[in-house]
Amino acid sequence: MGQTQSQTTRDAIITFLEGISQPFPPVTPFDKEFYAECHAGAVRRGWPPETIGKHLAGGVVMGSTGYAHLPNRSTRILIAIYTACGIYLDDVFHQDIEAVSQFNQRFFEHAPQADPVLDCFAQVLLELGDHFERVVSNIMVTSTLNAVTALTLEYKTQGMTMSPGAIGYPTFSRVMSGASEAYTLFIFPPSFTLPAFLQTLQQAMIFINNGNDILSFYKEDLDGESVNRVSFLAAQSGKTKQVILRELVEDAVKAHNNVLTVLAPHPEALAAFRAFVAGYIGFHASATRYRLEELKLRSVDE
């Protein structure tokens, strides 16, 4: 990525952060105690301790930033393990797509998975109903199963030419792969009634998906990745990736502000969402995989 392109990416991220009134935060100190609890929980659910490694670290950061406001520590641990399983799947599915493609069917049949980490993941899904309201946990499970299916879909559509008429496909595939329904609903503790937050689901999903696309774009473009939403939208529309990035910023800010409006009559739900947003940005700032420190984003706020 050339210097000019890096600068335009940096400008887009700054516009995004300013639009949601969030400064680029300092790196969150890694919580070793929380990591130890998550490690024990993952092993107890079947994850072989010798393969946890870097996958769990990302989940721990998510659990201790984006969802730090949740009152139940065991719920935060479950979210951290859930996230770690997702990171594991994303890292290894190219080497074992067959195990991934069998996950949903084996989950439905309560059959052993082809990978012990997938057994751990299946157990986490079964426990969601112990932590969240039944409708909410059902949506979380179906969202997750779609995300697993999306990995197989990605594998089977490698090299697919994006048709200019395929309006909506890039966003459809992004929503399917991101489990954004689950990550949105994780925000709200089970003590909140559904009417207090459910109407924000679609707009909060836009914020979460776009936010990740915006904050991961720098790293993905440096790595030459093309199987992502920004690339798909650019190919489908004929626009440049930088134009697409700016459009994602505009939509993310608009969605964020819409959520604030809908939650305004529900102070506790509003506070939960605001806490999540700050933590979500903190997660990306703290996860070295995104390489955001290279863009020197913090200097604009100091």
Rank of each mutant, 00 (worst) to 15 (best):
L151G: 03
G129H: 05
T157W: 03
A147Y: 07
H131E: 06
S137W: 03
E133I: 04
T144H: 05
V148I: 06
N138G: 14
A122H: 12
A122Y: 08
G129A: 04
S143I: 03
M140C: 13
D130S: 15
N138H: 09
L125P: 00
T149H: 11
H131V: 00
N138I: 14
Q123G: 02
V148M: 08
S137I: 01
V135T: 15
T144W: 06
R134S: 09
H131N: 04
L145P: 06
F121G: 00
D119V: 13
A122I: 11
F121E: 01
L153I: 12
I139L: 09
L125Y: 01
A147T: 07
T142M: 10
A122N: 05
L125K: 00
L145W: 13
A122M: 13
E154L: 00
K156A: 14
V136E: 01
A150D: 08
I139F: 08
F132M: 04
N138F: 10
N146K: 15
T149G: 13
V141S: 00
T152W: 15
V135Y: 09
V141T: 07
V124W: 06
T144P: 03
T142Y: 15
E133W: 10
C120W: 09
D130A: 15
L126Q: 11
K156D: 14
L145M: 09
F121P: 00
F132E: 00
D119R: 08
L153R: 13
V141I: 11
A147I: 04
K156G: 11
L151P: 03
S143W: 02
D130R: 14
F132W: 10
S143Q: 01
I139C: 07
V141K: 02
M140Y: 04
Y155L: 04
A122G: 11
D130H: 09
R134W: 10
M140A: 05
L145A: 03
V136K: 09
G129S: 09
V135E: 10
K156R: 05
N138L: 15
I139V: 12
Q123D: 12
A147S: 13
T152R: 12
N146R: 12
A147R: 03
E127T: 04
L128F: 11
L126F: 08
V136S: 04
L145G: 06
N146Y: 10
L151N: 04
V148R: 07
Q123W: 07
G129E: 08
T142S: 15
A150R: 06
T142F: 09
S137A: 07
A150N: 11
S137C: 02
L126T: 13
V136R: 07
N138Q: 08
L125F: 02
E154K: 02
L128V: 01
S137F: 03
A147M: 12
S137T: 02
A150P: 11
H131M: 05
L153P: 12
S143L: 08
D119N: 11
I139P: 02
Q123V: 14
V148Y: 14
L145R: 06
G129R: 12
E133R: 11
V136F: 05
V148L: 15
T144C: 06
L153W: 07
G129D: 10
V141R: 01
C120D: 08
T157M: 04
Q123T: 10
